[in-house]
Computed example of a mutant assay.
Amino acid sequence: MGKLSGKNAIVTGAARGLGREYALRLASLGANVGVIDINLKSFEEYTAEKELLTADTVMDEIKALGVNSVGAVADIGNREQVFAAVETIAKELGDISILVSNAGGGMGPMDGNKASQLNWEQFHAVVERNFFGTVYTCNAVAPIMKKLGYGKIVNVASVGGLMANSDGSYSHYASSKAAIIHYTKLLAQELGPYNVTCNVVAPGFISTARLVAGYQAVGEEKFTRNIALGRFGTPEECANAVEFLATDLSSYVSGAVLEVTGGTVGRILMNQ
């Protein structure tokens, strides 16, 4: 019996990357896992991601672990699609007691979208996919958890939501992730009486298959010099944090932010 045997989970943005890692971890612990993504084969867009797959889809990988899985296509920034996807998965798997709201991402150059120089199209798109998408998913799942009298909501923010780039860049992404953090604290207050915990995982610089090439292109030292541990994190290390918050190991933890940053937050690297 795994820690999550008999439980049903949803992971958004789980067709590749960190979302896939979270979904597989929950499945390895015994949970049935529903996958929501705008493209259930989005891993095909990146050779490094595609090479990680051990089956035709993430849902097939999950089923190979001996649990059930179903996929649903939705644009996470579209409220109607998100609610429909959650309904589809709940009908197939049963009542959802675990949510990992992971879908999101940035847009545009890393040194762009400074706080007073926003690209409005990118700003709206990023806020919708990060903040709005998280809110939609939580609102779709919360009634199920309230009925059950149990639930674990894990929202995914970022180191960018905890500290500001010194030049004010990538502010659309950072602001949306900061909003997720405060929203989750509000959600924890409301859902606490229903025995539903709501927490945040805030990853730092993580070496996913897709991002490694980007780090190397810019120069890894520009990133690692800001990390106390001096190295990038791994998807498995992020999944460890999700496992803690999605299981009863965290039964008295709610409204918290678990930083998976290797000591990046709170670190001030002086010019050398």
Rank of each mutant, 00 (worst) to 15 (best):
I96D: 00
A213V: 12
L249Y: 15
N78T: 08
I144G: 07
S169M: 02
M145Y: 02
S42G: 15
M107L: 15
M163F: 07
L24H: 11
L269N: 12
I89Q: 04
Y215C: 06
Q189E: 11
T54Y: 01
E128A: 15
L191S: 03
A64K: 14
G108E: 05
L187Y: 09
A84L: 00
V135E: 05
A55W: 09
D60Q: 10
A213S: 14
L258M: 14
Y194I: 06
A213F: 05
S175H: 08
S175T: 15
E221S: 12
I268M: 12
K146W: 00
T234N: 06
N119R: 03
I89D: 06
W120P: 10
I181T: 03
I76G: 14
S101R: 01
G112Y: 04
A239L: 08
C138Q: 14
E121D: 08
I181S: 07
Y22T: 01
T47D: 15
A209I: 04
S176F: 00
G219V: 14
A246F: 12
L40V: 02
I62C: 06
G108P: 01
N155W: 08
V242S: 04
D75F: 00
K147G: 06
K147C: 04
V218K: 10
N8M: 04
K147N: 13
L40W: 04
S176E: 05
A85C: 08
V35C: 03
L26F: 01
G262L: 10
I268P: 01
S69D: 10
S176Y: 00
R225I: 15
S171K: 08
L187Q: 13
T224N: 11
N32G: 11
K3H: 13
T208V: 09
L249Q: 15
A246Q: 12
V100S: 02
F123H: 13
S158H: 02
V67M: 13
Q81T: 06
G112P: 03
T264G: 00
P109D: 00
M107N: 11
S97G: 11
A142S: 10
L24G: 09
A239Y: 03
K177Y: 07
V86Y: 07
R79V: 02
G263C: 06
N271I: 12
I96H: 02
D60K: 13
P143A: 05
Q216M: 11
S69R: 10
D167Y: 07
G168P: 12
V257F: 03
M1W: 08
V218N: 08
L269F: 10
